[in-house]
């Protein structure tokens, strides 16, 4: 893998008000590359989904830390969202559209599907009791086409 040209790490507690904080930080950082407004919205949406999952499912609304790491490359970004929460038993099942482990919460079960659709690549690493790490990658076509 090539070397990133810039990198940021933030850590915040699992409060739902930090969902907007996380996506604004990610978008502000990525905007250094000057992608399109649509591409920035894609990143914001994917980050919002991953952080919401960490808070609702990872920590089940108890308190813990969520870590976000963004690495910028010349025309792309890699974003890692990690929690030390309860982890996912069956990752494949969790990624299925419309699947939700908490049907009582009026959740749509579309979180991972949205991440996959708005980013180019989404990898999920998780172990029950040890937490979850979501790694997302996106190339900004508006920039790669300039080359």
């Amino acid at each position: 893998m090539m070397q990133p040209i810039n990198e940021v790490k933030v850590e915040f507690i699992s409060k739902s008000s930090n969902e907007s904080f996380a996506r604004i930080v990610a978008a502000a950082f990525v905007s250094q590359l000057d992608p399109t407004v649509e591409e920035l919205t894609d990143v914001k949406t994917a980050v919002s989904e991953a952080v919401t999952n960490a808070i609702i499912h990872g920590y089940e609304n108890s308190s813990g830390y969520v870590r976000m790491q963004c690495k910028l490359y010349t025309d792309s970004v890699e974003i890692e969202i990690e929690d030390d929460g309860k982890g996912i038993e069956d990752i494949e099942l969790a990624r299925q559209p419309l699947y939700t482990s908490k049907p009582e919460l009026e959740r749509s079960g579309m979180g991972f599907t949205v991440m996959e659709s708005f980013m180019d690549k989404v990898d999920v690493y998780s172990e029950p009791g040890k937490g979850t790490k979501v790694v997302m990658f996106k190339t900004f076509k508006s920039l790669s086409e300039l080359k």
Binding site: R23, T45, E49, T52, R107, S108, M110, V114
Partner: peptide, 13 residues
Amino acid sequence: SFMDSSGIGVIIG
């Protein structure tokens, strides 16, 4: 100005 998949749950509900 922004909506993620949480909005789907709100609309369906």
